[in-house]
Design a protein around this nucleic acid. Structure first.
Lengths: 202, 202
DNA sequence: CGTCATGGTGGTCATTTGTACACCGGCTGG
DNA sequence: CCAGCCGGTGTACAAATGACCACCATGACG
């Protein structure tokens, strides 16, 4: 045969997946054009074969009716804005454009985060949270004892482990080089959110 | 003020977003049905208004031609199979995803991972890699000195820092409680892939 | 060689669906 | 009270597109 069919068919699958991820399933005409076919029917037959194999699902008579089977579908995506240094600051853009949200699988987190925050400093290395990590933060003004929280103290944003004792609040770093922060009554203090996971680029 | 746009119109926006995330933009008829309209034209006008406001983008004359603007689009999604406990000797190449794949934003990683691997043990806590973390792994049999790699030694999968010296290879843990692994010549050894980041649920 | 499966071309048909026009009822402002 | 806008209904038209049919080229196989 002139060309390897299996390679071509999987390339068509890749094309379909990419287009769906980009927001819209392709039509047969687009598949044909992308594959170099002159007629939509060639694409049609490939698509039928892919559906037969269970690699895609078809909505009959529906325009752009190609869907991915549930197992391969991204049905729990959440878009998270990436916040840089909150207080005074130069945005941290370099790697991920800050204006664009980052998409993550919602199943990744037990508690659904509202935004991602870039960690500054190494005060939490004892919990494996390093400088530059992106932590998922769920907005909340309440937190139980022992939780890792993002808090604002005197206008400074920090991520620390929360400790409540005798009605007082302490913020514990997880690095022996840092001292716990004791929140004085009347001091500017607020819990901004709860830590719910992190992502790190190697 | 053009009347309160937040109620019905934003519900339509949410509907559109949800459908796109599910794999296929809705048609006007579907929007009308979901919104309780009797005629597609009501949906049409709302969609036009949303496009006017820049909240969505329309591909003219194209069926299901609603797209999200680039800033809100998940255009670099990758589906990663999650490999769990790797039994001794089982090659990673023939991956059987234990679960559904996890979708992550490709921009998260400098090096595109091929799969996620659940970390066992605490031998890398010095690099902030904890037990239970999911590390992104890019398949590769080569690695430069100093990189964190996933390697197979005598059938055991480990994640360690690679050190090359005098033509020999050492695998360095990042935990003083563990000793470096010196790879003997003739020993079963292979680099499975390169560490390229991690995700952790808090 | 004859037959069949595979993979592609071209064209036709019917449905879906974007686009457009006419119109209506309620609300608001002058 | 009337003009005009807004949001919705109904209808109509045409483009996009899925579904299907007839047919051809090529290679594998008995």
């Amino acid at each position: 045969m002139t060309t390897d069919p299996s390679t071509r068919r999987s390339r068509i699958l890749d094309f379909i997946r990419q287009r769906i991820a980009a927001g819209q399933p392709p039509s047969l005409a687009e598949i044909a054009a992308a594959s170099g076919f002159a007629s939509r029917n060639a694409a049609y037959k490939h698509v039928q074969a892919l559906a037969e194999a269970g690699l895609i699902e078809l909505a009959p008579n529906q325009k752009r009716g190609i869907r991915l089977p549930a197992a391969a579908r991204a049905d729990d995506l959440i878009a998270l804005p990436v916040l840089g240094r909150v207080a005074a600051g130069a945005p941290i853009g370099a790697d991920v454009p800050l204006d664009q949200p980052l998409w993550l699988d919602g199943r990744l987190f037990a508690l659904r985060p509202d935004y991602l925050l870039r960690v500054q400093g190494d005060s939490m290395i004892g919990d494996g949270i390093l400088d530059g990590d992106l932590v998922g933060v769920h907005r909340s003004a309440e937190a139980r004892d022992g939780r890792i929280v993002v808090a604002r103290v005197e206008g400074e944003m920090t991520i620390k482990r929360l400790q409540r004792l005798h009605g007082r609040i302490r913020l514990l770093p997880r690095n022996p080089a840092y001292a716990p922060i004791l929140v004085e009554p009347g001091q500017d203090f607020a819990i901004e959110g709860l830590y719910c996971g992190l992502v790190r680029r190697g």
